[in-house]
């Protein structure tokens, strides 16, 4: 990948040709947050993921643009989550799981044997479907965990990172007076934003989100969506969602996956979100986004 991130703060322009803001959703204003990671894109080529002999995704090639939101949609079982987990090598944690093909991040193939998956996951963070704060840790410790458990950091440093991360995750005002209380004492939506803050604290470039709002009520969902729009200025975001309205609201690009005859998921169409939802190229995509199947 020969990507040179644009210098200066011009998050609207994307060398990959992605996108204008989706309808009805203005871009977040210039980031209030301090200059953060540039947010790298991902170049996926010929990616296959297997569980034992079962091929879960087949030959996926796409380019995820930096500092933009890419939505992955498709029917259940089409390999959306597996695809997402292949991007930061979480997939290989499953028994007998393996991957072929390549995922390039900043010019490095993450599947190069020399790449340490542990280091990779600090650059490509992840937020899960169900909020999963560490139950034995306070709010502060949850956010600090990624730093504290990977090296030595001074108290001042941790405090600064925790405050900054909670602010970026739009949770600071709600929890600043109770940083010592347990992370699980928060509401579901707050817990999910806590998990996002926890992922931000290790300063990733890319954030993968696996249906981050599907376990939340509509108000909490809205807050997460707002948060994603704000984060887009500084991070590359890939979000798997079952909710097509959500995909159309928050994403710049949309990838539609479906399942083949052999039950392997594959990429049908990858395009600007507006195009995918208003003028899809493939019949399958049109059937899906118009609610005719899936």
């Amino acid at each position: 990948m020969i990507e040179t991130a644009p210098v200066g703060d011009t998050p609207m322009i994307d060398p990959a040709g992605a996108p204008h803001p989706p309808p009805g959703m203005p871009r977040a204003a210039a980031p209030a947050a301090p200059a953060a990671s540039p947010g790298a894109g991902l170049d996926v080529r010929g990616l296959n993921a297997y569980y034992g002999t079962f091929r879960a995704i087949r030959d996926v090639t796409l380019r995820i643009p930096e500092r933009a939101v890419t939505a992955i949609i498709g029917p259940s079982g089409c390999g959306k989550s597996t695809f997402l987990r292949s991007l930061n090598r979480m997939h290989e944690l499953a028994p007998d799981a393996r991957v072929t093909g390549s995922v390039e991040l900043l010019g490095v193939d993450v599947y190069d044997p020399a790449v340490d998956p542990v280091q990779l996951r600090r650059v490509v963070g992840m937020v899960f479907q169900r909020p999963n704060p560490f139950p034995t840790m306070s709010i502060f410790d949850n956010v600090a965990a990624g730093l504290r458990l990977t090296g030595h950091h001074s108290r001042q440093e941790l405090e600064a990172v925790v405050e900054q991360s909670l602010q970026r995750a739009a949770l600071w005002d709600e929890v600043k007076d109770k940083l010592k209380s347990n992370g699980t004492s928060l509401s579901g939506g707050q817990q999910q934003r806590l998990c996002i803050a926890r992922a931000l604290a290790v300063d990733p470039q890319v954030i993968l989100m696996d249906e981050p709002a599907s376990a939340l009520d509509p108000i909490a969902t809205l807050r997460i969506e707002e948060l994603i729009s704000e984060l887009r200025a500084n991070y590359t975001i890939v979000i798997v969602t079952h909710n097509m309205q959500q995909a159309s609201r928050i994403s710049d690009r949309t990838a539609f996956f479906t399942m083949g005859e052999d039950r392997a998921g594959y990429l049908v169409e990858f395009n600007d979100t507006v195009k995918v939802f208003t003028n899809p190229v493939h019949q399958l995509t049109e059937d899906y986004v118009s609610g005719r199947f899936g």
Binding site: V118, G125, F134, P135
Partner: peptide, 24 residues
Amino acid sequence: TLREASLALGIPMWRTVWSVVIRT
């Protein structure tokens, strides 16, 4: 899900087991 959360933060396996799993 706790192991996943920890590993996804780039916390090594041994540290995940020690500081997250055993602590829980």
